[in-house]
Design a protein around this nucleic acid. Structure first.
Length: 907
RNA sequence: GGACUCAUAGCUCAGUUGGCUAGAGCGCCUCAUUGACGUUGAGGAGGUCGUAGGUUCGAAUCCUACUGAGUCCACCA
């Protein structure tokens, strides 16, 4: 009798009809929250598992890169939740200070305005409103993906708890002497009117012009003639004989503002091979020149500011240039040089130009008063984590990227002149002295913090830090896995580790093995590849090639999108977005849907595996159970990270997977599931089951197995396709919300008993499958009408278990009379080898022209096979060096092939 | 300049510690079919694994060089 709660499933799976309601039900039931929120003792004892969501920027809606991130993280989360961990997946968004402000700048520019027209307070207000709008859209998208994150802990990098954490972090770091303020050469974006960190500058190769000009007694090449008015010296290489006599002397130079006197100095920085070997020194506006000035302040200084923060020439540049944009000034200067006959020649010069990663404007290096984080000490510890294995990278090669970057890292400029973000919580007086509290003579800093400063605190600022006693901090820090794209290793991953070290954030009570000792904020950094378009290009707004996940979800369903993204990628490798694969994923969802329809329509009752009658199990029954076992082990292996088991606490079902997949290779696991479900289960077992269900002896077992396998695959598949599996669990099987038991999301991970690991059963299943395939092939080759029947004979030494599957073979291969044994018919027959058995199909009445040719081909193939094995075994080196089991295997193969050949030739 | 990744069927990609005749999906060809599913089923064609060397009994897999595609970092007066 059918369960009352069970519903008839429609013929096709329509994701849109279920997804929103299922998500709402999950959320309402509290399934997304950590079990320990329940206050039950057993739940408190569970081992914690935590992932924080890399907070998407509130500059825009999500794109497919976010979709793969959510799909992978949610899969990990759902697995561990079902495994019995106390699981927290913490969502959030990032205010993305400079990027968001840039968006609003753009909006203003469209109205011909700038932020200065609005004023700081209004600009901030408007930007926050813009941010909040996007935040809402993003959160809806995250929901649409089926992400099982705990919204009650939703965080935003600019909300009050995070503000408090940022301010506290700044103060502590300042007190420790790790944050300092000073005047240094920085990257300045004239459009954003702010300083940028080194890695926010994107270098692009482009063709420029190298202008050769007469310069006093010299000729020198420069790409920036407009800075001539800011020159404070001329430099040559100390060993350059050509210019040796000038070193230390003063020269007179003609400028647009009249003659100037400059000193000639010698410095190693000059490359005698480049240009003419003479360099003009502009310390305020060039990094290298500034370095020369630092080494020789008396000779090369003082720096002269001729380009202002707005990219326009300053008063100091002289009345002819002042107020002009730097590029207009360049043109004017070149015209002047021509006019004065000082321009010797122009040369096309390929060089890379630094541009702002947000505005794309050309970066203007300049000296500026900024805040810095000293990294020389903390970066050593950050590197040690990776070397000691406390911080693992998946794939491992990114460890090198991480270490290389740390090694080259200079002090991090953490201040920005952006009007949106965390204020620098400090006061500065006229002398440049700093106070953390308001004092007479001290003014509040107008700077804001680099947006990555707050992101760097994310693993613990989301957990209640700086309160080390906060329950979440104690329980869930350090996090387990930090999953993100490999493109932000530098921006983010390293900075989280650096901040953890700088602030000495030690694990709380949940730290397990790491308790008391300083640990990285997560034990594993899992890097996924970038999603690209079909031409291999990165998705970008300017190219307009982006794919909106919501649109894809609407068309194919969230499960299909998730499945496509997870199964067509492997860790660290890029993937091309291919809509055809999405179609295939949708079809797979529909396949599972229909498997469920078949099973739930046919099978009644609540009997489980324990009710099987072992003595009447068929080859197919045993085989599918073995294959299910293998598949479950593969899926578990992909999810199994031993590091997640270091913490104290219990998991109800300890994982003991065999090493059938590499940890975090979810794509591999997914493909194994796909293969099992579609091929083994749907194409073969279900077809066999249709026969077995009509057989009184086998029917009961078959029903039990159908249902058991279905239930198990729903569990295995749940991390990948949460909606579909939950709907079938509820509507098809009558469990969960509308029936008895719990929803699939929180019900235990399917336990597949080790007793099912019977490789021999799997092999027999495959053998019978091959027999059927062989008969089908023979039929096709002889143009047997599909509706007709053939006779078939299987020559084998082990007739029993093949004969036992006789009714399935006859049905699936359309065989009228099947015989198994030792005396095959002779005459006009087709023969083919299947392992050490032979399939013989009499051709009487069939188109038999091909019979002889067919047999000939079979025999030839066998002979060549035998030849290969013989050659290998004749090779003494092989026999001596190869492992014994490999040699034994070859011998067995040879014997089998020879037996098969003998049978083929027998008649 | 330094580092990394990729190159396997027409296309998109798997291929685990080196070990059977290198796999899948899509596409293509032939066929089937009204009771789970046409978002389906059966059968088939299609690959000198980028090139050249090397290590090994054995290489798509390890090493070296080269070619091509891409990425990151550094630097460029």
């Amino acid at each position: 009798m059918k369960e009352r709660a069970k519903q008839e499933l429609p013929k096709t799976y329509e994701p849109a009809a279920y997804e929103d309601a299922v998500y709402a039900a999950w959320e309402k039931s509290g399934a997304f929250k950590p079990a320990s929120d329940s206050r039950k003792k057993a739940d408190k004892e569970r081992r914690p598992y935590s992932i924080i969501m890399p907070p998407p920027n509130v500059t825009d809606r999500l794109h497919s890169g976010h979709a793969i991130m959510l799909a992978l993280e949610d899969a990990l989360t759902r697995y561990h939740r079902k495994r019995g961990f106390d699981t927290l997946y913490l969502p959030g968004t990032d205010h993305a200070a400079i990027a968001t402000a840039a968006q609003v700048d753009k909006q203003l520019a469209a109205d011909g305005k700038t932020r200065h027209d609005l004023g700081r307070a209004d600009f901030e207000k408007r930007t926050l409103a813009f941010a909040m709008e996007n935040k809402k859209i993003i959160e809806d998208q995250v929901r649409a993906m089926g992400t099982s994150c705990d919204w009650s802990r939703n965080a935003f990098t600019l909300d009050p708890p995070r503000k408090a954490a940022v301010a506290e972090a700044f103060k502590r770091l300042f007190k420790k002497g790790l944050i300092y303020r000073g005047s240094y050469m920085v990257n300045w974006c004239p459009t954003c009117r702010t300083v940028l960190a080194d890695d926010e500058v994107v270098y692009k190769e482009q063709e420029g012009v190298l202008y050769y000009m007469k310069y006093g007694p010299f000729t020198l090449g420069t790409t920036r003639p407009e800075t001539k008015v800011g020159d404070t010296a001329v430099a040559v290489h100390p060993k350059d004989k050509r210019y040796a006599k000038w070193v230390g002397k003063e020269i007179e130079v003609k400028t647009i503002n009249g003659p100037r006197t400059l000193r000639v100095l010698a410095d190693e920085m000059v490359d005698p091979e480049f240009g003419t070997g003479v360099v003009k020194i502009t310390p305020f506006h060039d990094k290298n020149d500034y370095a020369v000035y630092e080494r020789r302040p008396k000779e090369a200084g003082p720096p002269l500011e001729v380009i202002g923060e707005d990219g326009k020439m300053t008063e100091a540049a002289g009345p002819k240039l002042a107020g002009l944009d730097r590029f207009a000034a360049r043109k004017k200067m070149v015209d002047w040089l021509k006019h004065e006959k000082l321009l010797v020649k122009k040369e096309v010069h390929k060089h890379s130009v630094g541009r702002c990663y947000r505005s794309d404007d050309v970066i203007e290096p300049r000296i500026s008063e900024q805040w810095f984080l000293k990294v020389s000490d903390i970066k050593k510890q950050a590197a040690r984590f990776a070397r000691d294995g406390d911080l693992k990278f998946v794939p491992q090669r990114f460890e090198k990227t991480y270490l290389d970057w740390l090694e080259k890292l200079h002090d991090w400029c953490i201040s920005r002149q952006v009007w949106f973000g965390h204020p620098v919580p400090a006061y500065v007086n006229a002398k440049g002295e700093v106070s953390l509290t308001a004092k007479p003579g001290f003014k509040k800093s107008q700077d804001t913090l680099d947006t990555w400063f707050s992101s760097a605190l994310w693993p613990f600022s989301t957990m209640g830090w700086p309160k080390q006693t906060a329950p979440d901090f104690k329980r869930f820090f350090p996090n387990d896995v930090l999953e993100t794209g490999y493109d932000i290793i530098f921006f983010w991953i390293t900075r989280m580790v650096l901040m953890t070290v700088a602030l000495d954030v030690k694990p709380g009570a949940g730290g397990g093995a790491g308790k008391g000792a300083l640990k990285p904020p997560f034990h594993t950094a899992y890097l996924h590849g970038l999603v690209r378009d079909q031409r291999g290009r990165k998705f970008s707004k300017s190219l307009g090639n982006g794919v909106d996940p919501l649109e894809m979800i609407g068309k194919y369903g969230a499960d299909a999108l998730r499945w496509m993204l997870v199964t067509s990628s492997s860790p660290g490798n890029d993937l091309k977005f291919d809509e055809a694969r999405l179609v295939k994923s949708r079809n797979f969802a529909n396949k599972i849907w229909n498997i469920s329809r078949f099973v739930t329509d046919t099978v009644e009752g609540e009997a489980g595996l324990g009710d099987l009658r072992a003595e009447t199990l068929t080859t197919f029954d045993r085989g599918i159970l073995h294959k299910l076992y293998r598949t479950a082990q593969t899926v578990e292996a992909a999810f199994h990270d031993p590091a997640a088991y270091d913490k104290p606490g219990k998991t109800p079902e300890p994982a003991t997977p065999k090493k059938l997949a590499k940890p975090y290779d979810l794509g591999f696991a997914g493909n194994a599931l796909y293969e099992f479900i579609w091929s083994d289960f749907a194409d073969w077992y279900l077809e066999a089951a249709k026969v077995q269900l009509r057989n009184d002896e086998a029917a009961r077992n078959t029903g039990i197995i159908l249902k058991y396998v279905l239930e198990t695959i729903l569990g295995l598949l749940h991390p990948f396709m949460p909606f579909l599996t939950e709907v079938i669990w509820r509507d098809g099987l009558g469990k969960g919300a509308s029936g008895k038991g719990s929803a699939l999301i929180t019900s235990p991970w399917p336990a597949v008993h080790g007793d099912l690991d019977q490789p021999e059963d799997g092999a027999r299943f495959d053998r019978i499958r091959e027999v059927i395939e062989t008969i089908r092939r023979i039929r096709a080759e002889h143009q047997t009408p599909a509706a007709s029947f053939v006779q078939a004979y299987v020559v084998t030494d082990e007739p029993d278990w093949i004969a036992a599957a006789g009714d399935v073979i006859t049905k699936l291969a359309r065989v009228s009379i099947l015989r198994v044994g030792q005396n095959p018919p002779t005459g006009e027959v087709a023969r083919a080898a299947v392992g050490d058995a032979t399939v013989v199909v009499p051709l009487a009445g069939l188109a038999s022209d091909a019979a002889a040719a067919h047999l000939q081909r079979e025999v030839e193939a066998k002979r060549m096979e035998i030849e290969r094995f013989k050659e290998r075994l004749a090779n003494e080196d092989y026999v001596e060096n190869a492992p014994e089991h490999v040699v034994a295997e070859t011998k067995a193969q040879l014997a089998e092939a020879e037996a098969a050949l003998a049978k083929l030739e027998a008649s």
